[in-house]
Write a protein that binds this DNA or RNA. Structure first.
Length: 271
DNA sequence: CATTTCACCTGGTGGC
DNA sequence: TGCCACCAGGTGAAAT
């Protein structure tokens, strides 16, 4: 599912293909995909120049002069960068047409937690209340934001107000690398172990972003092929491997449900 | 406030 | 082969 690295990869690809181009047309194909702002305001973006595409947490941000369009990818969000004319894929809910003949097609199959937000000026919309981005946070800030919490460390990592961008996949991977059981309460974890977790999280995210970058280099959406932006495979060590042997010690990986999310961990390597 | 739980939605899977 | 129950999970609102 799209978390920080996937959103980063999408934002970078869109930025290199589209930054500097004028938005020519907006096609909102599913009205309820627009969560903040009116369709009128959305259409009002047409004619403006796209200054940049960036990322905040798990969201992709189209930056226009005086306004922003925030795209929440949710559970199953993808963006297809394509030439107009060809039929958009099923579940295409919003199409942004740019000068130079590129369309950014926002595709969502499971319509959960996904949507677009048109923000004027300094308006924050869904970005309000987000903690600092997980790929840039330093060890001191990380410790300060987590310190003393009663929540299970897995839940704390996925709490977007504490730290933005981490979801089920990368929290599982970071906890495995740090040797921490996802059910452990943060306040019971030593400072040294939390520092290990910080380092593990930063490393996992950096590797995933690099993997996304290499995927981009292969798919070259700018070369004319239809570019599906959104997913790539970093080889996961625990995520989704419930019931299979741990790659470090061979113990069968177990599953725990935390905050309604299933988490996979090694009962021997993670304490 | 912090924390926990639940609804939302659809495609893929696995059992029969 | 076909049917259907079940699962996945990001977000925000509601409950504790």
């Amino acid at each position: 599912m799209p978390e920080l690295p996937e959103a980063e990869t999408i934002a970078r690809a869109l930025h290199s293909a589209l930054a500097g181009r004028a938005l020519r047309g907006v096609d909102l194909r599913r009205r309820d995909f627009l969560k903040t702002g009116s369709p009128r305001r959305l259409r009002g973006l047409a004619g403006r120049r796209l200054e940049a595409v960036s990322r905040r947490g798990k969201s992709v941000v189209f930056e226009f002069a005086g306004a922003r369009l925030v795209l929440q990818l949710g559970m199953s969000g993808r963006v297809q960068l394509a030439r107009p004319g060809r039929r958009p894929p099923p579940h295409t809910h919003l199409v942004l047409a740019f000068a130079g003949g590129w369309e950014a097609r926002c595709v969502n199959t499971r319509r959960i937690a996904a949507g677009a937000h048109v923000l004027a000026g300094e308006e924050l919309g869904p970005l309000a209340g987000l903690g600092p981005d997980a790929d840039g946070i330093g060890p001191d800030d990380f410790l300060a934001r987590l310190a003393g919490r009663a929540a299970p460390v897995k839940a704390a990592l996925m709490n977007q107000t504490i730290l933005a961008g981490v979801g089920n996949i990368y929290s599982d991977e970071a906890l495995f690398r740090a040797g921490l059981r996802p059910t452990r309460r943060v306040r019971d974890i030593s400072r040294a172990a939390l520092l290990r977790l910080h380092a593990a999280l930063r490393a996992v995210l950096a590797e995933a972003i690099a993997a996304g970058g290499s995927t981009l280099a292969d798919s070259t959406p700018f070369a004319g092929a239809e570019g599906e932006l959104g997913y790539f495979t970093l080889s996961h060590r625990v995520y989704g491997r419930y019931g299979q042997p741990c790659l470090e010690c061979g113990t069968t990986l177990r599953r725990a449900v935390i905050g309604g999310r299933s988490s996979t961990y090694c009962p021997r390597c993670q304490r």
